[in-house]
Amino acid sequence: MSDFTQRFLFEDSDVRGELTALEQSYVHVLAKHSYPPVVGQLLGELLAAATLLVGTLKFDGLLVLQASSSGAIPLLMVECSSEREVRAIARYHAEQLVDGASLRELMPDGALALTVDPRQGQRYQGIVALDGETLADCLSSYFTNSEQLPTRFWLYADGSRLARGLLLQALPAEQLRDPEERAANWQHLTTLADTLRAEEMLGLDNQTVLHRLYHEEVVRLFEPQPLEFRCSCSRERSLNALASLGQQDAEALLGESAGEVVIDCQFCNQRYAFDAADIAQLFSGGGSQQASSTRH
Rank of each mutant, 00 (worst) to 15 (best):
E217W: 07
A101K: 00
T115N: 03
F222I: 07
Y124Q: 12
H28C: 09
L189N: 00
E95S: 14
A250L: 07
V219W: 04
S146N: 10
R182E: 02
V78F: 04
L189E: 00
A94V: 08
D131E: 09
S68W: 07
L196H: 06
Q248R: 15
E147T: 11
T5H: 02
Y214R: 06
Q225F: 08
N269I: 10
T20Q: 01
A94Q: 09
S140Q: 00
H211R: 14
L103M: 06
G40Q: 06
C233V: 08
P37C: 12
G110I: 03
L239Q: 05
A241Y: 12
L47Q: 05
R182Y: 01
R230A: 10
S68T: 15
L253F: 06
G110F: 02
A280P: 08
C233E: 03
G44V: 09
S234E: 08
E181W: 04
P36I: 09
E217C: 07
R177L: 04
A273G: 14
H211I: 05
H28W: 11
E180W: 11
E174L: 12
T294V: 15
H188R: 15
R271Q: 15
E228R: 14
L245T: 05
Y214H: 06
T115W: 04
Y92A: 01
A198W: 00
E181S: 07
P172D: 08
G55H: 00
L65I: 05
Q207E: 11
Q148L: 15
R295F: 14
